[in-house]
Write a protein that binds this DNA or RNA. Sequence first.
DNA 1: GACACGTGGGG
DNA 2: TCCCCAAGTGT
Length: 352
Amino acid sequence: MIRDSAEAAARLLSWYDRHRRDLPWRAKPGETADPYRVWLSEIMLQQTTVPAAGPYFRRFTERWPTVRALADSPLDDLLVAWAGLGYYARARNLHKCAQVVANQHGGRFPETEAELLELPGIGAYTAAAISSIAFGRKATVVDGNVERVVSRIFAVETPMPAAKPALRRLTATLTPEDRAGDFAQAMMDLGATVCTPRKPKCMLCPWAEFCDGRAAGIAETLPRKAAKADKPTRRGVAYWLLNPEGAVLLRRRAEEGLLGGMTEVPSTAWGPEAPGDAAVATEQPLPAPWRRLPGVVRHTFSHFHLELGVVAAQAGDGWRAVEGLWVPIDRLGDQALPSVMVKVVRHALSNA
DNA sequence: GACACGTGGGG
DNA sequence: TCCCCAAGTGT
């Protein structure tokens, strides 16, 4: 049991100073944090691993060094740059947020949690993280790592998400006035490298001797969570249509919802059953002699599996009237293609 | 509280 | 193969 929060925090900060990781968005010791980079990294890291976010962060900061630069850029350029990272609402909100900061805050991020919380794409976690890491203000930063660490240290057996309020209160009692930002990053690093979901490295933990979960032999089983619902499978058929100039037909998806604003290969609706030839004909973007390509594209989204067949055809007269954009094959890299559509393109190119 | 919302890596 | 998981937010 932790009896002295101040001592526990000091011990964790000492561990952090000795094991600090050098991440692309992290200010070096002595450097002043750049709120823009802190914000950008926190958005990219939402539900995303450090290795996945790293290259995107470098490309974004190279191309858009300031929040004003990002605000002045067209949304579509951001979506192209974000393609492949997932959760595309983050990119749409990133652009909105940049414009609000540029136009209503003079290009500077607000420092308080309450003000940050007003901004698009910034929730409780990100507001606390920016306020503490970028501005040195005391804030209770609670992410998945922190919930895991705290649930184990205090042996909280209440299942998630019901345990969230208690875990937040416990985290608040541990958070020091001084170096709150470093404390937050230390907690997250501890969760990411030592107090891991499976096979935690308790022998390396600076809090091992305080840890109630470890003492009870249940640390690895925490935090408790309900079983997840299994994912349904949806099926559809994508239309790989080439015009006489060798360009392929693409479309922009609706601005909201799944893959909102991203570019897609046109397809039938996605339903429980694979569309037959009749449905393929009904939903075709243009009448054409479709031939089915062998195989199927499989992809898994956050909440369902997708199986996409592909049909291909050459567009005859009337291709100019089709709604969408015709993109030369060698220019597909300029498009905001999400990973599932990259799979469709690859499948079509290798089977057509 | 529950659900929508991506992706790639690891066991 | 399949399930779990990652620095969550918006509705």
